[in-house]
Amino acid sequence: MSGFTTQELFAIFAMQGFSGLSLFCVFLLMALGLAIIFGQMGVINMAHGEFMTLGAYLTYLVSVQAATLGEWALDAYFPVAIAVAFLGAFMLGYLVERFMIRHLYQRPLDTLLATWGLGLILQQLFRSIFGPREKTVTMPDWLLGSYSATDMIDIPLNGLFILAITILLSVALLVLLYRSRWGTKVRATTQNRTMANAAGINTDRVDRLTFALGCGTAGVAGAAFTTIASTGPTSGGQYIVDTFLVVVFGGAASLFGTIVSAFGIAQSQSILSFFWSGSMAKVFTLLTVVVILMFRPQGLFASKVRR
């Protein structure tokens, strides 16, 4: 690090930090959905990445449609795309719960394997429909360009946009789970399924909606993803291992923990990758997380409950 002045170092940290922020957004958007499904239901959804890819492709389709409508549509399509991505992933998730996950609740390891099979099928479907080449979404003009904080620091606008989406979605989910009546039902089901059932909560319905909501969140993650990268059949799948580590590292039952751990993992990968090669930065970060998890398996934030 001797070759840099303090000012340069600061600029590097700020800019790498900001590019880490984009990675953080992808991690967090993916992880929020996983955390809801895993934390609330104990289900491991290995096809989660494919739900994200689905959201990204749906966004791409909406942008193609918008391009045929003209300039004004290109400027305004993005909110529509987010809604479409959410609904598409939500509905697929609903069906998957109904026909597959529901039969496997007593066997968490088997859910993991079955959803991996599902992910494989979805990936191939994407490849057949959209082709192996990556698709790039036409971006609205207002998302291009960057904001210059100082002479040396340039912050891309799409990065700011994805950050805004992430914050909005996180807040919405936190409110939904901890402030709404439906959230109370979900948490009641998590804590004591039999009692929740006895108290008149339709736990089957809660499960289905929880799973679908988690998948819908992944769809939104996909929409956000298109603003920073192009989409291929395996775009979502390649984040699945990192995202699982994010969820487990944060403490499975804590959404707040998920946010902190997504931030930590993304920032350390991004900042380290400036000084080392990207692969070594990733190895170092993931290895640190794995080693910490070996000593603190409950993750960073976990509640103490008599089991």
Partner: peptide, 26 residues
């Protein structure tokens, strides 16, 4: 020894496999 099992063990072993691949490729 720390009673980690089930899906946690599955995820962590998978992560180690990924780490090893990246390391060898890198």
């Amino acid at each position: 020894k720390r009673r980690v099992g089930g899906v946690y063990f599955a995820i962590i072993t998978q992560a180690i496999a990924v780490i090893m691949t990246i390391l060898i490729v890198g």
